[in-house]
């Protein structure tokens, strides 16, 4: 599951780097990192408390 999630995020980043989508590429990268935290928290609720103490 995690592998598929990472694969999808990789595709998202690649797609975001295409000329027509590049306008906010930096922000997309930041959102992908934060989004990964949200995705992990939602996928593994047991991990969520530890994840969010990081912030």
């Amino acid at each position: 599951m995690l592998k598929e999630r990472l694969q999808t995020l990789g595709q998202l980043v690649r797609e975001g780097a295409r000329p027509e989508n590049r306008q906010h590429f930096v922000l997309v990268l930041v959102l992908v990192v934060a989004g990964l935290v949200i995705a992990l928290g939602a996928m593994y609720p047991l991990v969520a408390p530890f994840l969010y103490t990081l912030f």
Partner: peptide, 28 residues
């Protein structure tokens, strides 16, 4: 993403809800 950039700082609730929706289900 573009809409969030264009509306900041007036769209927190929409941004928050969107980020959750997308990273919890829609992107996958």
């Amino acid at each position: 993403v573009a809409s969030s950039v264009a509306n900041a700082p007036f769209g927190l609730t929409a941004f928050r809800a969107a980020l959750h929706a997308w990273f919890e289900s829609r992107l996958w």
